[in-house]
Structure formats: C-alpha cells, structure tokens
Write a protein that binds this DNA or RNA. Structure first.
Length: 604
DNA sequence: GTAGGGTTAG
C-alpha cells in the first residue's frame, strides 16, 4: 500500500494547492490534475499521483480516472495490470477509457485481450467512436485475424465511420497484413482523401507479399498525386523493391532522396541500401557504404558476406567473417549460408567443411537445408560427387529438391551419369520436379553421347506434361524496369529487338558461335529449336539494352531462374563483340561477363 | 474535454 501522508512532501506539491485554494473550481482541478498525471516519468511517480487523487477525492471524477488509465496503459514505464486495476474501479467507463484499454493491450501485443475489451465495451452499451476502430483493426492486422477484421470493418461502416481517414488507413493495413491484398486495394481505391499513411500502408502491404513491381508503381502514383513526402519507412520499402528488381538507377535515386531528407541514416536504412547496391550488381558501392557505416550489426555483416560470396569473392567474404567474429558479433544462420557459399564459389573445400563444423559446435547454429545445400554445392563443384551424395543420404533432415538439383547440376558439369540419374530420379519422384531438371539430365546424356537416353528423357518429360518455368529477365532503362519473357513478342518496339537479335547472331557466327539446341527439349525441328533459343528472355533483354543504352555503358540483368548454357556462351561472346560489361544476377549468384569471359569460371 | 492511422534491412 502507498503511504499517502509520507508522499506529500516529496511529490505533487501543486496538487496540495487545490485544497488550499478555494477559488479553484472542480473542472480546473481536474484539468490540472490530469496535466500532472501526464508528466509522470515512472510507475513509482505515477503511483504517488494516483494516491494523491484518491486522497483528494478527485479520483472519483471519471475524467481523472480515465486519464490515469490512459497514461498508465500507454507510457513506456506503464503497466497494463495496474491500468486494468484502475479501470475496474471506474463506475461507468466511457469510450475514452475503453479505447485506451484496447490500445494498451495492442501496445503489449496482447491482441486477443484487446478484442475482448471491445466485446466488453459493446456489452456495457458504450458506443465505439472514430478512435476505437483504428486500434482494433491494428489488433486484427497483427494477429492476423481476417474474420474478426471483416466484422470490425462492417461494424465501423454501420456506425458511420466508413469514410474516416484513420479507419480507412487501418483497413488498408489490416487487409494487407491478412494477405488480402485485393481488399486492401479496394479500400484504398475508394478513399476520397488520402494521407502519407494511406500510401505507406499500401506500399508496405505489397512489399510484405513480395509484389515489388507493384510497390514501385504505387510509389510513382504517390509522387504524381502530389502526396510526396520522403519518409524513411516508405523509402526503405522502395529500396527493397529496387533490390529485388535489380533497379540500380532508381535505387541510387532513392538513396539520394534519403540523404536529402534525413539528417543521418540508421543501421537499418544503411543495410538495406548496401544490400541494394550489392544485389543490383554494384559490389564496390556496397562495400564503400559498408566501410563507412558507424554502426554495423549481425545483419549488415551477413549482407556483405553473402554479397561478396555472390560476386565470386569468396576469400574476401571469409576475411569479413573473421572480422565479424573479432568484433564480438555472433554469426547467425544467414551469415553462415554466406560463409559456406563463399567457400563453394572459391572452391575451398577443406575450409568450407571446417566452417560447417564450427557453425554447429561454436556458434550453435542448427544446420538447415540451405547449409547442406552449400556443402553439396561445395563438394559437387570440385567433383566430389560421391561424397555429396553420401552426405544427402545421412543428413537428419529430409533432403529437398534444391539439394538433389544441386547434385544433378554438379553431375552435369563433371559428367557423372550414375549419380546424376539417382538425383534426377529423386526429383521426378518429388512433386517439385520440373522441366528444367529433365533439361539438365538430357544434357548430361547428350554430353556422354547417350542419344537414346536423351530421347527417353524428352519423352518422359512430355508424358508428365511438364512445362518449363517461364524464364524472365528484367532490365532497367531510365529508371523503369522492363520485363522480358522467353518467346514474348508483346513488348513495345519488339521489331527493333528482333532486328537487333538478328544482327547479333550474324556477329556471333563470325566468332564461331553455334547454337546449342540440346537445351530445347520440345519436340520440334532444328529450325524451330534455333528460333526458340534465340528468343530466350536474356537475349531479348540484352538486345533491348544494346539498343537503348549508350555505347560502352554496362548492362545489368536480373533473372528469375538460372540461365541455360547456351545463353551463358552467347553472353560471353556478346560482351566481347560489343565491348560491354554485362552483369547477370540469377537465383544464386552474379555472372560478370567481360571480354568474353565470366566470373563464375563456367561453374554456374 | 483528453487520443488516433502507416513505420523499415539479409
């Protein structure tokens, strides 16, 4: 219990004025009391203030009591248990007190309890107001609870808050977090008035679902509607979108906006920028940012380590990993994926296995299928296919299709038909087998001149009705991202592109290039195979970039799937014929094509 | 009578 008398001399002296000043009316006392309550800096102080209100008899004003609840529920030092005990003493709590109880629970992430308080509010006959719904919708968003969210939505419309800006913004967010992006857009589209928060919620909703192109589209819409205020949280999502789409120019431009509007960039923003530069192919700029970061954490190191690995700089990645340890930072599972892939890109088998051991023993990171994938890749790259296969057989977790696919690819490179067949069989038995696997197996057979097996593989693929995942390539031109799909003729100025392709092929012929039609498994004649091969998305993207960019400037391409061996050979030659540096990011790594060679040392 | 919505990195 609080000893009221003992506290009087220490705190809230002005409250004593109430008793000594007969002129002070009750309303004024309430106001002053509330302003003192709001000034509390700790729960201890607050308890004293609470005690004072009781002693002075002013607690029984629901205005004062509600403000005690509000302050205690929302302050950093607050306590919902304490707020609740005060709330229970209010005879007839109004919407203000209920709203704050809901907010307090949401703040503490006790979301179910927040919804329970709302039920209680309705049972007590207290009408929710425009402040109730945004908080309630936040609870539904974070649970996430779509059914409840929809009910709250209906309720808010029924009570006439359907047009409230705050309610609508919360709905955009709630539907987004519940994965109902179309409902999120529907609410947004119907809004008569929008604020930065409306755009922010819509962009974040699309970002959380990985709809990066849409993110940029919305961002452009935001600027063109004049609602353009560079906000860190929005720009970070834009930077992420640039990273995923490989849009380096727009990424650079967003970096500029951040520098202009913010007085300093925090570690989150800097890490996302660094990742953007690295993954958009500008490793040096990423390193430059990293070296100048004042605060570096586990994640910033993780990004840079895997970035270096991705760009084929395995030894540098390992150096950075050791620096991370020297800094006293504990590497996590992602940092280790970076380290192990660094070892595999650099062909450091012994080191890789050593790090894999340390990971488990020293840093207590439980190996995931990704780590095993790196080890299989590591062993596979140097031709230790038997060891890689043995590893897959003994691991404690269920091997997934990525492991078998990695092994299969390694078998193609090192021409091991026996193990390759095992891997291909495992893939065909799993639901996730795809046409690409048959292409690799068929290539493996073709290399060993087993033409009968090539035909058998092709037939099997056809029987299973496998359709090759449509490959696409993205290329950025004047801050817009263009998407090319294999065999696609729907893009603008396609005539120009096909003319360019034709011209490129002429040049390639002089360099001794002949199309490797073995990668086309469709049962079509040789001429059609050549035609299909020449309109692979990467070639279309290169043709487009050659037409629309200035001579000598680098070309950057982002792909969704690995490139076929024909595209790899083709791009190497184009880089030398047209004297262009061509960077291609695929699912796993970067390929830097320059003067007719590739940084992956043809191991990709 | 008081208060509120969106808020970020691999």
């Amino acid at each position: 219990m609080i000893k009221v008398t003992a506290l009087q001399n220490h705190f809230l002296i002005p409250l004593d004025d109430f008793t000594q000043n007969p002129d002070c009316n009750f309303r004024g006392r309430e106001q002053e009391c509330v302003s003192l309550i709001k000034k509390c800096k700790s729960l201890e102080e607050f308890k004293q203030a609470h005690a004072q209100t009781l002693k002075l008899g002013i607690f029984w004003s629901s205005f004062v009591a509600s403000n005690l609840v509000a302050t205690c529920a929302l302050s950093n030092w607050g306590s919902m248990d304490y707020a609740c005990s005060i709330f229970r003493q209010i005879e007839e709590p109004g919407s203000f007190a209920f709203n704050h109880m809901i907010r307090g629970h949401v703040k503490d992430m006790n979301l179910e309890q927040a919804l329970q308080v709302f039920d209680e509010m309705l049972e007590c006959g207290v009408e929710p107001d425009n402040f109730t719904y945004p908080t309630l919708l936040k609870a539904c968003a974070n649970l996430p609870a779509l059914k409840e969210g929809k009910q709250v939505h209906g309720h808010s419309v029924k009570l006439g808050f359907g047009d409230d800006l705050f309610v609508q913004n919360s709905l955009v967010n709630m539907y987004g977090k519940c994965g109902e992006i179309s409902l999120s857009c529907a609410v947004f589209d119907k809004m008569v008035q929008r604020s930065v928060a409306s755009w922010s919620a819509l962009i974040a909703a699309h970002a959380s679902l990985g709809m990066w192109g849409k993110c940029l589209e919305i961002f452009r819409g935001m600027s063109s509607e004049g609602c353009w205020r560079a906000e860190e949280s929005i720009l970070v999502n834009v930077v992420s979108a640039c990273t995923h789409l490989g849009a380096l120019d727009l990424g650079r431009c967003t970096h500029g906006s951040l520098l202009r509007t913010m007085s300093g960039l925090n570690v989150v923003v800097e890490t996302s920028l660094m990742d953007m530069y690295v993954k958009c192919g500008s490793l040096n700029k990423g390193l430059f940012l990293f070296q100048r970061m004042i605060e570096k954490n586990q994640m910033s190191y993780g990004v840079m380590i895997s970035g270096l690995a991705m760009h084929g700089q395995g030894r540098e990645a390992l150096k950075l990993f050791n620096e991370m340890l020297e800094q006293g930072l504990k590497p996590d599972d992602v940092a280790y994926v970076g380290v192990l892939s660094a070892c595999s890109h650099a062909g450091l088998v012994e080191e890789g296995l050593k790090y894999f051991g340390r990971m488990k023993l020293e840093h207590e990171v439980v190996p995931t299928v990704q780590h095993y994938g790196c080890i299989v890749d590591l062993l596979g790259r140097v031709g230790k296919l038997k060891e890689a296969y043995e590893l897959i057989k003994i691991i404690s977790i269920e091997p997934n299709e990525v492991l078998w696919r990695t092994l299969l690819n390694a078998c193609r490179v090192h021409q091991n038909v026996a193990i390759g067949e095992v891997a291909a069989r495992e893939l065909s038995l799993s639901d996730s087998g795809n046409a690409g696997d048959y292409v690799v197996l068929s290539n493996l057979y073709a290399q060993s001149h087993s033409w009968r097996d090539v035909a058998k593989t092709r037939k099997e693929m056809m029987c299973k009705g496998f359709i090759q995942t449509p490959g696409f390539s993205l290329v950025e031109m004047k801050r817009k991202v263009y998407r090319f799909v294999s065999q696609d003729v729907s893009f603008p100025k396609c005539d120009g592109i096909y003319e360019m392709i034709h011209q490129m092929e002429w040049q390639l012929k002089f360099e001794g290039y002949s199309p490797d039609t073995s990668v086309v498994l469709h049962d079509v004649d040789e001429g059609e195979k050549r035609r299909r091969l020449s309109s692979h998305s990467q070639k279309l993207a290169i043709a487009f970039a050659l037409i629309h960019s200035s001579q000598g400037s680098p070309i950057r391409i982002v792909r969704n799937i690995r490139m076929c061996s024909d595209c790899h050979t083709y791009t190497k030659l184009i880089s030398s014929i047209y004297d262009r540096e061509i960077t291609v990011r695929d699912r796993n790594q970067f390929h830097h094509f320059k003067d007719g060679t590739c940084s992956c040392r043809d191991c990709g």
